[in-house]
Amino acid sequence: MRSGLQNILQRSSFALTEAASPPVSGRLHPGASPALVLIEAQQNASRWIELVRQVKEQFPQARIVVLSDQFDLSVVRLGHAAGVDGFCLTASAPEVLIKSLELVMLGETVLPLAVVRSLTAGVVSAQDRPPQDNSVAEAKLPDLEGCKLSAREMEILGCLTQGEPNKVIARKLEITEATIKVHVKAILRKIGASNRTQAAMWASQRLPRRGVLSPNV
């Protein structure tokens, strides 16, 4: 895949800086700060999602695109929460891949058409179902008030849903990174999540969503 990507991108406006395997531990060491990082999604989703977080923490301004032969909707949601800007299929034609990367660099979020269809199918199914008693639906899900999150914790939780690392959150809120870590631990404890990904997924279902996903066509 790496050599194939090199051949495709050499014929585009993108300039390759480095192609490297993900480190087992530690930081990435590209020759320059990358504007775009391509990550091959392995079968173990937690591994490449953690790599996405490492890239976001080390290069906050870099755009991230994940490549795979297929994408599960739940995994796409986790990747988006971690900071992925685009999801592209390895079977895409070179012209489609290049155009998708260009859209990502313009600030768009790109999804394969199959994922978009899954999303729209879910919306249609929800519209077709008869309305249910809101009090019953809400009783099945813990609400934000029940978790007793502080205003600052709510603010940080919103940042987690955007896949922002502690360093970026600290800079945005003008507090120390160590303070952010303390707040994140408190958030995980209060909502019963075991990690940042679970917290982001929990919050994404309860906080207003930001941003629009554009289909990969």
Rank of each mutant, 00 (worst) to 15 (best):
A114N: 08
Q42S: 15
S33V: 03
A35T: 00
S92R: 05
K181M: 09
T120H: 07
I175G: 06
I156V: 15
C88A: 15
G26V: 05
V104I: 03
E102L: 03
N7M: 12
V84Q: 01
S150W: 06
T161K: 07
S21V: 09
S100F: 00
A200G: 06
L103D: 10
R206W: 10
I49G: 04
A193V: 11
V212I: 12
G211D: 13
T179W: 10
G163M: 03
Q6M: 05
V116M: 14
V96C: 00
S33G: 09
A121R: 13
S150A: 08
E155D: 12
Q6Y: 03
L111W: 04
V75I: 14
D69N: 15
R47K: 10
R47I: 12
A151P: 02
A19R: 04
V116F: 11
A32E: 14
L207N: 01
K56D: 01
F14N: 05
S33K: 12
C159K: 05
A45F: 07
A139K: 12
G83I: 00
D69P: 15
L207C: 10
T179S: 15
T90R: 11
A126M: 12
L5G: 07
R129C: 04
E177P: 11
Q54L: 13
I180M: 07
R196N: 08
K140T: 09
R129Q: 13
G86A: 07
L106E: 15
D128I: 10
R210D: 11
T109M: 02
I180P: 00
A81F: 03
K140W: 05
L97T: 11
N134E: 14
T176D: 07
G83Q: 03
V182I: 13
R63M: 02
S68C: 08
Q43T: 14
Q61L: 04
L9E: 01
Q205K: 12
Q43A: 15
V136S: 12
Q43G: 07
V182Q: 11
R171G: 14
G4Q: 09
F59R: 04
C88N: 00
S92Q: 11
V182H: 10
W48H: 10
T109I: 06
T90K: 15
C159V: 00
P112G: 00
Q205N: 14
N216D: 07
R129P: 01
G26N: 02
V115D: 01
Q42N: 09
A186F: 03
L188M: 10
N216R: 05
G146M: 09
P94L: 04
V84W: 02
N216Q: 09
